[in-house]
Write a protein that binds this DNA or RNA. Sequence first.
DNA 1: CTATCACCTAAAGTTAACTTCAGCTCAAGC
DNA 2: GCTTGAGCTGAAGTTAACTTTAGGTGATAG
Lengths: 158, 158
Amino acid sequence: MKTFTIGQVAEKIGVTVETIRYYEHEDLIPPVRRDEGGRRVFTDDDINHIRLVIEMKKADVPLKDIAYFASWRGDGDDSLEARYEFLEKHELTSEAEIKQLEKSLAFLHYKKWYYKTAIEAGTENIHLLDGTLEVSEDTLNEYAQLLKNSDAKTLGKR
Amino acid sequence: MKTFTIGQVAEKIGVTVETIRYYEHEDLIPPVRRDEGGRRVFTDDDINHIRLVIEMKKADVPLKDIAYFASWRGDGDDSLEARYEFLEKHELTSEAEIKQLEKSLAFLHYKKWYYKTAIEAGTENIHLLDGTLEVSEDTLNEYAQLLKNSDAKTLGKR
DNA sequence: CTATCACCTAAAGTTAACTTCAGCTCAAGC
DNA sequence: GCTTGAGCTGAAGTTAACTTTAGGTGATAG
């Protein structure tokens, strides 16, 4: 079977060799085989383990949790349920994160519209009550009205 | 105008008083007025500043960046363009984050389906090539087929 | 045959965003 | 008149996920 050095693996999957050693040290991947000199010898399986860690990281799964998941692999078929539940839990977390980010995005769209119109008017004062920093009802109502016929993203565009 | 102590503000918006002091210290909000004893006296404007920081944080804007945005407020209408561009930049970042999370979610769905079917079979071996850890083409093809008629989320459900 | 390069380990350092701590002030309740 | 509680400051500590450093080995290119 084809094998790789740590440098080759790092290159292949786009992380540093230090990160790979760190992942092994933290038990996010199973211990990698060594040659007579103590150097790591990676197989495709090892590479897939690292890729799995990276995929989970992208889903914002903390390394601590990934370590649990990794440890269950050692339990074979006995841990299938545990692994399923783990994935379900993080599925819910990811869904919630997406929803929150979508709200935040809507907020950014509103803010863009706010500044776009301020720029067009030459001043932010068109949105503020007299000399305060409070946004006027008029501005809020206008935006709410506009949202009925256009989408937030478009409204924010210049 | 109504004013509040730091404790009242913390309570009102759900952060600790330490966090509020930290935000002021880091210039994420303008310096808050003090009473004769040196204690902070918050107005609704101050509260809105803190709320803005929190909203931006939810959009994963780093505090360092929020500090820039905050500093531009001092430049008044001269910084409207800068603020618009700032929002546009973070809009793009948020959109990219959402897209990544959606990919990750699809990955979690696939993994759930993988373990769901393994649980039903009583073993993960149905998905693996002989004694290895490599997932078989059959499994991958089957999932690809199933995706044509159902959505990933449903496929992962038990 | 020696210098360079990839590799190794253990330990210390880094960054973000807070939190905790030590030590001090002041108004209010008993 | 003393204690309690909320506030204050500056500095040190915390956590995650790495990165950097210091010091050491062994194959290979010149």
